[in-house]
C-alpha cells in the first residue's frame, strides 16, 4: 500500500512540474506577444529598446569629446558600464512590471505569483543575451575591440548582475503587487542607483568618503566586475567585493520568495 502511495505521490509531483512548465511557457509567450504595444513586432522592439538605450548613453557620454576616464576607448569604457547596469536594471524592472501587468491572470486559479516572476525572469535572461550580442556586434562594426581579455569573468559579471536584478525584481514585484503606486518610487530609486553605480566614472578615483558609501551599492560592484574583465589592473581597490554582491543578491531573492509566500493572499485581493 505504501509503495502505491509513493507512486501516486511521484506522479502528482510530475504533474505539478508539468503544469508549472506549461504555465511558464504560456506566460512567456504572452509576454513576448504583448510586451510592447501588443504587436507581434514587440519582440524586436524588446531587443531594439535596450540596445538603443545603451547606445544613446554611449553617444551622449562620448559626444562630450573628453578623454575616456579609463583605457583608451570612450565607447568601450561606457559600454562596459552601461551593459552590466542594464542587465541588472532591465531584469529587476521587468520582473517587477510582470507582476503588475499580469496580475489579472491570477484570476485563473492555477497561475501563481511565482509563475509570473519566473516567467518574466526567464524571458529577461533570453532578452539580455540577445541584447549583449547585438550590442557587441554594433560596437565591433564601429571599430571597437569588444573581446575582453577575460571573457569568463565578463560572463560571470553579467550573470551576477542579472542575479542581483532578479532579487530586486522579486522583492519589488511583491511590493508592487500589493501597492501598484510602488513603481514610481522604484523608478526613482533606480535612477539614484544609476548615478551611484560608477557607470560613467571610475569609482576608485573618487574621494574616500564617497567611496565608502558607494561600496554598499551592489550594482556598482557588478559594473566594477565587468570592467575588471576588460581592463588589466582595474578594480583592484577594495570596491570589487564579489562576495558582498552575490550575498546581497541571493539574500534578496530569498527574502523576496519568503515575502511572496507570506503575502500571496494580499496580492490576490
Amino acid at each position: 500500500m505504501s509503495v502505491r502511495a509513493g507512486a501516486v505521490h511521484r506522479f502528482a509531483l510530475f504533474d505539478l512540474l508539468a503544469a508549472h512548465g506549461r504555465i511558464l511557457v504560456a506566460l512567456i509567450m504572452r509576454d513576448v506577444q504583448t510586451r510592447f504595444f501588443g504587436t507581434p513586432l514587440g519582440f524586436i522592439i524588446a531587443i531594439a529598446w535596450p540596445v538603443s538605450h545603451i547606445f544613446l548613453l554611449i553617444l551622449i557620454n562620448g559626444a562630450a569629446g573628453r578623454a575616456p576616464p579609463y583605457g583608451d576607448n570612450a565607447s568601450l569604457f561606457f559600454a562596459t558600464g552601461v551593459v552590466p547596469f542594464m542587465c541588472f536594471n532591465y531584469m529587476s524592472r521587468f520582473t517587477m512590471l510582470g507582476v503588475m501587468l499580469n496580475k489579472p491572470l491570477l484570476a485563473y486559479p492555477i497561475v501563481k505569483v511565482g509563475d509570473i516572476l519566473f516567467a518574466r525572469a526567464a524571458l529577461e535572461v533570453l532578452n539580455a543575451a540577445v541584447v549583449v550580442i547585438v550590442t557587441m556586434a554594433i560596437l565591433t562594426a564601429m571599430g571597437v575591440d569588444v573581446k575582453p581579455p577575460r571573457p569568463q569573468e565578463a560572463m560571470y559579471a553579467l550573470l551576477a548582475c542579472m542575479w542581483l536584478g532578479l532579487g530586486f525584481g522579486i522583492v519589488n514585484g511583491v511590493i508592487a503587487g500589493i501597492f501598484p503606486f510602488w513603481f514610481t518610487p522604484f523608478a526613482l530609486f533606480q535612477m539614484v542607483l544609476w548615478i551611484a553605480s560608477g557607470v560613467i566614472m571610475v569609482p576608485d578615483e573618487l574621494p574616500e568618503g564617497v567611496r565608502y558609501w558607494l561600496s554598499w551599492n551592489p550594482a556598482l560592484i557588478g559594473v566594477e566586475w565587468m570592467r575588471s574583465a576588460y581592463y588589466e589592473g582595474y578594480g583592484l581597490g577594495e570596491l570589487l567585493d564579489k562576495r558582498y554582491m552575490l550575498g546581497f543578491a541571493t539574500a534578496s531573492i530569498f527574502i523576496g520568495l519568503v515575502m511572496e509566500r507570506t503575502m500571496r493572499g494580499r496580492i490576490l485581493q
Binding site: 508539468a18 503544469a19 506549461r22 504555465i23 511557457v25 504560456a26 509567450m29 504572452r30 506577444q33 504583448t34 501588443g38 501587468l101 499580469n102 489579472p104 491572470l105 484570476a107 485563473y108 492555477i110 497561475v111
Partner: peptide, 21 residues
C-alpha cells in the same frame, strides 16, 4: 469573468488553453 481585460478574447482563450494543457 476571469479574463485579463487588456488581452483580446482570442489571447485569453489561447492563454487558458495553454495553461491547462
Amino acid at each position: 469573468g476571469g479574463f485579463h481585460p487588456q488581452m483580446t478574447g482570442r489571447e485569453n482563450v489561447k492563454f487558458v488553453a495553454r495553461i491547462y494543457g
